[in-house]
């Protein structure tokens, strides 16, 4: 009796086999090139690999991969190899990805990608750093206020274009010190920062120019009566983004974000960013 579907079985491959690593690196490259929000991720561990033979030719690598968030924003053109992994003390975020990668004539192509991301537990964070603030909800009023103050401070001090907020990508609130730390992405508009009267009338430049900011906001305290804001922004060279899709966690948020209480649509790009592709091509959920 012949086995059913002869020739369609899979072969198990060592997760640390160079061929597995090669497929995983192609998958990670694909993931990062198609991210438009949150942070770039780097390979941490290959969990499982099955290699299926494909008719008439080729092989499909079905892989489960664990990733870790880096400190480079998705819009940052820095190669991920040069990005630092987010440390445990900064409240690390991991990704859990399923990929299908086709190997044909020695070339790897991603056919399917799906990633969920989730922050490390608050308990784990306390173990490594009892005083480190955990990730905060991105729509927390303190976070929103800190981002507004930081962006205003940046626009007030810049001599160039007025920058609009693209997304808040990360936030931590240190209640003891009354400080809120925020990270957010910005985009240049056709308005001059020092001349803006109505930001709503500013339009994004045709050739998109993005930036990434880290800010902190200190609330007024009973002793210290002044608010303080500090912000540092890096403006990236103008860039042509690929047609993008999102990487979502189980709560419907992008990699690097805390679960949000609102039911934001899944994989909806933020304003000013390209929509997901329609039609044929690799599927990125």
């Amino acid at each position: 009796v012949s086995p059913p579907n002869p020739g369609l079985g899979y072969r198990a491959l060592n997760c640390d086999d160079p061929e597995s690593e090669q497929a995983a690196l192609v998958a990670m490259d694909y993931l990062n090139k198609n991210l438009f929000r949150g942070y770039k991720h780097t390979l941490n561990q290959i969990d499982k690999v099955k290699v299926w033979s494909r008719r008439p030719t080729g092989e499909v690598f079905e892989m489960e991969i664990d990733t870790l968030e880096t400190t480079c924003h998705a819009l940052d053109p820095t190669p991920v190899a040069n990005c630092s992994v987010r440390s445990l003390g900064e409240h690390a975020v991991e990704g859990d990805c399923d990929f299908r990668v086709l190997k044909l004539d020695g070339q790897f192509t991603v056919l399917f990608a799906k990633c969920d991301s989730s922050p490390d537990s608050a308990e784990d964070l306390r173990k490594v750093c009892p005083d480190c603030p955990p990730l905060a909800q991105l729509n927390n009023t303190k976070v929103v206020h800190a981002v507004e103050a930081a962006l205003t401070a940046f626009n007030t001090q810049t001599n160039g274009s007025y920058f609009q907020l693209v997304e808040v990508s990360r936030a931590q609130i240190a209640y003891r010190t009354r400080m809120t730390y925020v990270e957010f992405a910005i985009a240049a508009t056709d308005c001059v920062a020092k001349e803006v009267t109505d930001p709503a009338k500013c339009n994004l430049l045709a050739e998109k120019q993005y930036g990434f900011c880290k800010g902190s906001f200190t609330e007024k305290g009973p002793v210290n009566g002044n608010e303080k804001v500090a912000v540092t922004c890096t403006v990236f060279p103008t860039q042509q983004l690929p047609v993008a899709a999102g990487v979502d966690d189980k709560e419907g948020n992008t990699a690097g974000e805390e679960p949000q209480p609102d039911n934001s649509p899944v994989a909806t790009p933020p304003a000013n960013l390209p929509e997901a592709p329609v039609g044929s091509g690799p599927l990125l959920v």
Binding site: A12, L13, N14, C15, D16, S20, E21, T42, L43, N44, Q45, I46, D47, K48, V49, D66, L68, V85, L88, A92, E94, D120, D124
Partner: peptide, 27 residues
């Protein structure tokens, strides 16, 4: 490997094919 029948041969290290190595740290 050649071993005398009376000498017990210690089993070699078991290679776990998966999951693979952790490059940074595990959450």
């Amino acid at each position: 490997n050649v071993a005398q029948p009376s000498v017990a041969v210690a089993p070699g290290p078991v290679v776990q094919p998966c999951p693979g190595r952790i490059r940074h740290f595990k959450i």
